[in-house]
Design a protein around this nucleic acid. Structure first.
Lengths: 185, 185
DNA sequence: CCCGTCCGTTCTGTATATGGAACGACGCGA
DNA sequence: TCGCGTCGTTCCATATACAGAACGGACGGG
């Protein structure tokens, strides 16, 4: 599918998800509703600023409007590790794998921190090691006293035994979080 | 920084990285060079198609042109696990962590598969479990006889004991790869 | 029934993003 | 030194993305 059609479909889908009317969306984004109508129909080649205004109103990362939605995610999942879902306002945490072996435990999480969110995690027991692999967005994380700024591809390891913070100052952040516990409990 | 400036800066940086001249880039993208000149200067509000043509020529995921580059990634890395780098033409694989415990071994890799690449991995020893967490792009992976298509957020687990394939038909793919070996060797 | 309101599409005049021409600056070989 | 190619910028005519008006249809209250 050509790009303008993809963007149009994504816009319409995002708008439907939020239950907004076309007119209301256009009003909030301060664009003409004719513009939005033709955009969603895939009949116009939007300007960066138009896209940005819509992304903001629809609360969708700009980049997401530009890629074709994998038509269906569920059926391709071969062996999905459904785990604890600690989702909240600021972040989604989903347990993907857990390995208990040799007197220690390792958990792999998929982490999604929403744009603008800040979350402080109280200290875990000592000798818990946290590791983060940032994939998209900019994440400020680490011990609360000395957090670091990470971009895509960056990696951090720190002691979970002190208070630590997760903060996404700009964009949504996706990352992989590994927690290593010294005991198998 | 306003968005058009960000995009302009990203375009200029991407072009510089590839050592292309402005004129040559414009020619390849089939856009006017005046257009590109003013775009890079942050003086124009580009059209989706213009951006797309440039992203293709510069071989940058479209979304990446739209976000401000974290001004410097290196110094924020607190404790980078520098491991074996199996980088090649089609994919980069970087070992981020290794846990040997309880008679088994677990390795965490950051995986980057380039757009268009296809890579077939010969069967490992039996009982090796591979797990993949896709973060960006669309990845076709799994046993060579029956690969699956994964999008961002999708997860797959399969037996590494048979031939399996990694393929990025459209965009660059970033993912986390976990390899679990039954013995600590 | 008959307004009034809201919906999404189509239409229209204007603003502006576009490709390409023109330009001056620079480097290089003859 | 001169000519020639390429560079990046500025300028121009044209195409088109824009905002908003006009429109017909759906719905609901009086």
């Amino acid at each position: 599918m050509e790009l303008v059609k993809v963007v149009g479909a994504n816009l319409r889908a995002a708008r439907a998800e939020r239950g907004l009317s076309l007119s209301e969306t256009a009003r909030r984004a301060e664009i003409g509703k004719g513009t939005l109508s033709e955009l969603e129909a895939g009949r116009r080649n939007p300007t960066l600023e138009t896209l940005y205004a819509l992304a903001a109103v629809l609360d969708v990362p700009l980049g997401r409007l530009l890629v074709a939605e994998p038509e269906s995610a569920a059926p391709v999942v071969v062996n999905r590790a459904r785990g604890a879902d600690l989702s909240g306002q600021v972040a989604d945490v989903e347990l993907m794998d857990r390995v208990v072996a040799g007197g220690q435990r390792l958990e792999v999480y998929r982490l999604h921190v929403r744009a603008g969110a800040r979350y402080v995690s109280a200290a875990h027991r000592p000798r818990v090691v946290e590791q983060l692999l940032v994939h998209t967005g900019t994440l400020v994380t680490g011990p609360e006293s000395a957090p670091e700024t990470l971009g895509p591809g960056d990696y951090i390891r720190f002691d979970g035994g002190v208070d630590h913070v997760y903060q996404a100052p700009a964009d949504d952040v996706t990352a992989t979080l590994l927690m290593r516990y010294p005991d198998p409990s």
